[in-house]
């Protein structure tokens, strides 16, 4: 399977791009840039400015919200097909977490400007982003509930 087909399938499987037709995903796939990271690297740190979102093609990424970016305590670990970094492309605030490479990773990056252009052309993309944000919000709520119940114990 050639690279472009692999990318399209990866995008189609991801929560953000699943609503877009495979034919249109060709353009998105062509807009992606490949970046490789080694185990132990940090993709971005908390409070960094960011203009890229990432889709994991291969490898494993840990997300930490600790103020010290060197501390590897993950609130969630992401695997192939997962997306991250899309939040601050929309709210334009600094990164809310640090992304650590747990296993050697190949990431597909999408630039903010390209994402904005895609959203204008494909409104379905906004639904996908909303869906992924909603999932994250739910996960955070569950995590908060667990923390609360542990504190009460």
């Amino acid at each position: 399977m050639t690279d472009i087909f692999e990318r399209i399938l990866l995008l189609k499987r991801s929560s953000v791009f699943s609503k877009i037709q495979t034919e249109d995903l060709q353009i998105v796939a062509q807009s992606l840039e490949l970046a490789s990271y080694s185990k132990g690297d940090r993709i971005f740190d908390i409070d960094d400015d960011g203009d890229l979102m990432y889709i994991i093609q291969q490898g494993c990424i840990g997300i930490s919200t600790h103020n010290d970016p060197t501390i590897r305590e993950f609130i969630v670990t992401l695997k192939a097909g997962d997306c991250f970094g899309e939040m601050n492309l929309l709210d334009e605030l600094p990164r809310s977490a640090t992304a650590h490479v747990i296993e050697d990773a190949a990431l597909l990056c999408l630039h903010k400007e390209k994402l904005h252009g895609l959203i204008v052309n494909y409104p379905e993309l906004s639904l996908g982003i909303l869906k992924s944000l909603s999932i994250k919000l739910r996960e955070t709520t569950i995590m908060l509930q667990q923390c609360n119940s542990e504190l009460e114990k």
Partner: peptide, 16 residues
């Protein structure tokens, strides 16, 4: 995986 992609494409095509 190409078969999966084809299935996605066929699903899109059906809708269209």
């Amino acid at each position: 995986p190409s078969l999966e992609l084809l299935n996605y494409t066929l699903t899109d095509r059906r809708q269209q």
